[in-house]
Simulated scan of single mutants.
Amino acid sequence: MGTVTALYRYPVKSMLGEAVFAVAVAENGFLGDRAYAVLDETGAVGSAKHPRKWGGLLGCRSHLDDTGMVRVVLPDGTALPVVDPELHARLSKLLGRSVIVSAAVPEHSRLERAVPEYEGGVPDVVRESASVDATGASITTGSVAPGTFFDFGRVHLVTTASLARMRQVYPTGDFDARRFRPNLVVDTDAGPGFPEDAWLGSRLRVGEALFRVVVPTPRCVIPTLDHGELPADPGIMRAVARVHRIPVFDLGRLSCLGVYLDVLEAGTVRVGDTIALEQTA
């Protein structure tokens, strides 16, 4: 049915991550993925979904070194381990307020999201409850998935077919997969389209691991922001909203690209592994 063309993990939430050739997959997703997050004194979890407050995190890169330690490379090139107090001080200066890097999820965590102007960026009922914060941004506030720093699904998959379809819709747009912060990028050997829409509820075998396809991935503002060498492109999500608003649970029709997966069987996944659908009974 297709093959894995790229694997990514993001050891610190909302920082740039790293491409890997192989990764161990456990119940909670890719080993080392979203193991840490930046927290401020209010308990807010750092997320570039609120770019005026946390956008500076996308100027940093996190990776696992050969010993398994997570290290952060700051915009000036300085590399520090997450356990180094100097990293907390540097990030506090970068973001303009006191923050720490933590592996402990706050009991009452808060995740803030900027509300996009285009329709389908957030559910209508959520848009109606938005408020303007001290940055002047209209935001909504929710929480992370219990006990984790994931927004929802443990693994995020994007197909090359969906990216190809969006390039047809918006030819001047830069639909590099990294904008969408996937864990898995898969080539389905199909033409432009959204083949993953038909996978919902199915089981997906990828290498040694088995996943359940849970729900389409609603997109936020993050794909429009600059990601390292990828420049900002505000038209990216407007294009997705024009052509691919689909039902998500009972939240209405939202702008989606990719799907969230849950892990059913652990195992190692490698670039080049085949993918295959296993229909549920």
Rank of each mutant, 00 (worst) to 15 (best):
Q168H: 10
Q168R: 13
D189Q: 13
D176C: 12
F175M: 10
R165S: 11
N183S: 10
L204E: 05
P171N: 06
L210R: 09
P182C: 05
P195W: 07
Y170A: 06
P182S: 07
S202D: 15
W199R: 08
G207M: 12
L204H: 11
F194C: 01
R179N: 13
W199Y: 09
L204N: 10
A209Q: 07
E196S: 05
G201Q: 12
R205F: 10
P171Y: 04
L184P: 01
R181P: 05
T188L: 13
R181F: 04
R167K: 15
G191K: 05
G207N: 10
R178I: 14
G173R: 02
V185N: 09
A190K: 07
A190Q: 14
R181N: 03
A177W: 07
E196N: 03
G173V: 04
R178E: 14
G207W: 08
A198L: 08
D197E: 09
R179Q: 14
F194H: 11
F211W: 09
D187S: 12
D189N: 13
V206W: 05
F180G: 09
G191F: 01
D187F: 02
L184M: 10
Y170W: 11
V169I: 12
S202R: 15
F211D: 01
F211N: 06
M166D: 03
F194S: 04
F211Q: 04
A190R: 10
R165D: 08
M166V: 02
N183E: 07
L204A: 09
E196R: 05
D176W: 04
R179M: 12
A209L: 08
G173W: 00
M166H: 03
E196Y: 00
D189E: 13
G201T: 11
R179F: 10
F194W: 08
A198G: 03
R167S: 15
R167T: 14
A198Q: 14
D174N: 15
G173I: 05
D174Y: 01
S202I: 01
R178F: 11
R203E: 15
F175L: 10
G173C: 07
P171Q: 03
P182F: 04
L210H: 06
V206Q: 09
S202E: 15
F180W: 13
F211M: 06
F175N: 09
D189I: 00
F180A: 08
R203V: 09
E208L: 11
R167L: 01
Q168L: 14
G191N: 02
V186R: 11
L210S: 06
E208I: 13
F194R: 07
R203M: 14
L200H: 03
P171C: 06
R205G: 13
E196I: 01
L210P: 04
D187M: 07
R179W: 11
L210K: 10
L210Y: 09
D176I: 03
M166W: 00
W199S: 05
P192S: 01
R181Y: 04
P182N: 06
T188G: 01
F180C: 05
D174M: 08
A190G: 00
G193I: 05
M166G: 01
Y170R: 02
R205V: 15
P195E: 03
R165N: 02
D176N: 15
A190W: 00
R179H: 13
A198K: 12
P182W: 04
P182E: 10
D187I: 12
P171W: 04
R205H: 12
R167Q: 14
P192F: 02
G193W: 01
W199E: 03
F180E: 09
D176Q: 11
D197K: 05
G201F: 12
G201N: 10
M166L: 15
